[in-house]
Design a protein around this nucleic acid. Structure first.
Lengths: 120, 120
DNA sequence: CTCGTAGTTTGACAGTTCTCGTACTACGGT
DNA sequence: ACCGTAGTACGAGAACTGTCAAACTACGAG
């Protein structure tokens, strides 16, 4: 994919879209998957960076990697390596600057829905 | 087919999800397509029901039909026939009841993005 | 009844998405 | 140096999506 990505030693860099590159459609699409919505909800809950392995998702590791990448590439989360772990955190500041109130509305909506459906 | 013979003419009935059936993921997915986001924006702008033919979308009629169906089946819009025309209107009330603030945030976000990009 | 306008249906196609399994790399601890 | 844990890359496959064209249905006006 990435041309000349001879990323041999150490430089485990992760590509993030710049603030101006974040598109609303991309963000909405990223959030429209149940698994990803769940990840984002937990991330918001904790208000801190979490390792991928923290989440106990009902999918394999490769699928997990995939979902985190979608979230990162759409600009919803920020990721960085920390030892062998990959930490993820919401890009709250950027999202709020670009689309004020959007993230909170979605988070609130997700909470309400969970309450309404899974509140068994 | 339920023989719900309404006084108003028309065996052309359109299926809409009940309020409790509307899912956040579905709504977000419906809104994550540029064409549909555009439709919703115009619908919100007009604050009234509009015929499909009002929209001058850069796609064929069948594609337009498809997008309107996705919006209706996800619970974002409400549709009914009126003569040969099919009128569409936002389900603002239902959406606000279910996910307070969500629609407005998305609309606002869409406006900001249009401003930021198209206002070049 | 006939015609035009508005929208639907169907089938097709290319592209994307979600998922998996297996093989792989990167780092830290012992 | 070795091993285990965390995550990645690479196919691959099934399902879904956005799009079109062409043939069709429904309604209103003459």
């Amino acid at each position: 994919m990435t041309p000349a990505t001879k990323s041999t030693a150490g430089s485990r860099t992760l590509e993030h879209p710049a603030l101006e590159e974040i598109r609303l459609e991309g963000v909405l699409h990223a959030l429209s998957d149940p698994m990803r919505l769940r990840i984002v909800t937990e991330l918001a809950c904790c208000e801190d960076e979490l390792a991928c392995s923290y989440f106990e998702l009902p999918v394999t590791k490769s699928t997990t990697t995939h979902h985190f990448r979608v979230l990162r590439e759409s600009g919803v989360i920020r990721q960085c390596y920390r030892g062998t772990a990959k930490m993820s955190g919401l890009r709250r500041d950027d999202l709020d600057a670009l689309f004020p109130g959007l993230l909170d509305s979605v988070l609130d909506a997700a909470a309400r829905q969970t309450d309404r459906l899974g509140g068994a």
